[in-house]
Design a binder for these strands. Structure first.
Lengths: 146, 146
DNA sequence: CAGAAAACCGAGCAGTTTACTTGGAATTGG
DNA sequence: CCAATTCCAAGTAAACTGCTCGGTTTTCTG
């Protein structure tokens, strides 16, 4: 039940862009530095977010990335699904297209994992990037970064 | 956010033992066949459950495994933690002993993952093996197995 | 118009993990 | 004794993770 760095870094990057939403495009180099992520690696991750349409890119000098929508319209769940695929503790309880399973009818543990899946989805879909930014501002008294 | 077969098979095996709680020890071969798991692989998994004290073994002919406690006293969360370790989408939000993280003070995504962790734990700890057996009996009309 | 800053692209890769298999040795009931 | 069974240790193929490397293309600025 571990999150890979894809989801972890992807969310950090989106949060970073959200914190600076409304200004110039942010070069990936800056995001990578601020969030402590390898730039080249993050490049691959943000490519996924771009293809899915969560961020827009501006090429060339003074280019960078911006959120495709305001932070209030982007749920954490959107980011995680983009990076990690459908929420699915097991393939047979995947959101959207659960894998076939011969024992579907009487596999009780399936029910357990479906409940876990729903509870994860509910948390992730109840938090927007805007929420995260608000929380960050609140807890901001004792820090210098960002 | 995927469960490995360790947790998956481990729970299936515990459920199988729970369904036959009170009778003779059940040989692993039978559990493996009923649940569709490689016997030798399951052997390794149940060794963990034994060391942790969730099952007891009886060696020799007519031996096998039995639950160490009644199904009502074993939570799904106990089984999953035994097999997969503490619930922890990220190391820095692990139950019990979260890994150190330089950015603890201001890492907002940490809060998200702590909420996910709690929601998973709540589901897993709210279901006992007895609950699973009860549900299995209910949905039993259309099946021949078990 | 040159140069630099940036996004974009694709391949490679070392290490870890996963999900097993294999081949036994020890224990015990009948 | 012997068959059933647990117990144990090692090996392994394939996939995955978390990167790095080496570029090409686009576009702003001086």
């Amino acid at each position: 039940m571990r999150l890979s760095t894809k989801g972890h870094y992807g969310l950090k990057a989106m949060f970073d862009l959200a914190m600076h939403y409304g200004s110039e495009p942010i070069p990936l180099k800056i995001v990578a530095e601020r969030q402590g992520i390898s730039e080249h690696y993050l490049e691959q991750l943000i490519a996924v977010l771009r293809k899915i349409g969560l961020v827009k890119s501006v090429r060339g000098a003074q280019g960078g990335y911006i959120l495709a929508k305001p932070p209030s319209e982007i749920k954490v769940g959107d980011v995680i699904r983009a990076m990690e695929g459908p929420i699915a503790p097991l393939d047979c309880v995947s959101e959207y297209e659960p894998a076939a399973c011969e024992k579907v009818d009487y596999c009780i543990s399936r029910d357990v994992w479906a409940r876990v899946r729903d509870s994860i989805a509910e948390v992730l879909d109840s938090i927007t990037l805007e929420d995260m930014c608000r929380d960050a501002q609140k807890g901001q008294m004792h820090k210098s970064d960002l």
